[in-house]
């Protein structure tokens, strides 16, 4: 059965290359499931609207909520006039807060100020707040 023309060293080299190759294939095959296991979810259902009870957003008040995993705010600046924004400050990513006395948003990190339309009033933010579409459906405010 044994071919004398192939010496032990050659067999060992062949087996080594074979096992190394199998090892590489296994490593590559294992990397994909691990990557997929750890990767954040693909954001399935991100197009879904978020519904908020109208009563939760009184006049001249803001309601903070989670919009597809990110903080957002819905505001009733005038009777029946709702607006929604991403609550993430466009400066360095802190979450803004509502200042009812001033009727404006304030970023507590670096004192960025935004109007009820999301426009920059002062401070370092380079851009206005990201606006989110709002619709009314009976006693529900639909965002998204």
């Amino acid at each position: 059965m044994t071919d004398p023309s192939i010496n032990l060293s050659e067999r060992r080299t062949f087996l080594g290359i074979l096992l190394g190759g199998v090892g590489l294939v296994i490593s590559a095959a294992a990397a994909w499931p691990v990557w997929r296991f750890l990767a954040p979810s693909s954001g399935e259902g991100n197009l879904a609207k978020v519904s908020i009870q109208r009563a939760e957003v009184p006049l001249e008040q803001a309601h903070f909520f989670s919009f597809h995993g990110k903080p957002a705010v819905v505001l009733q600046a005038a009777p029946g006039k709702f607006a929604a924004f991403s609550a993430v400050c466009t400066h360095l990513g802190c979450v803004i807060k509502w200042v009812p006395e001033e009727q404006e948003f304030l970023c507590p990190c670096h004192a960025g100020r935004f109007s009820v339309e999301g426009k920059v009033l002062g401070g370092p933010p380079p851009e206005p707040l990201e606006e989110l579409p709002v619709a009314l459906d009976g006693d529900q405010v639909l965002v998204g």
Partner: peptide
């Protein structure tokens, strides 16, 4: 490499 190859074969 002698025994390490055998180790690898049994590990696989």
């Amino acid at each position: 490499p002698n025994y390490a190859i055998k180790d690898m074969a049994v590990i696989f």
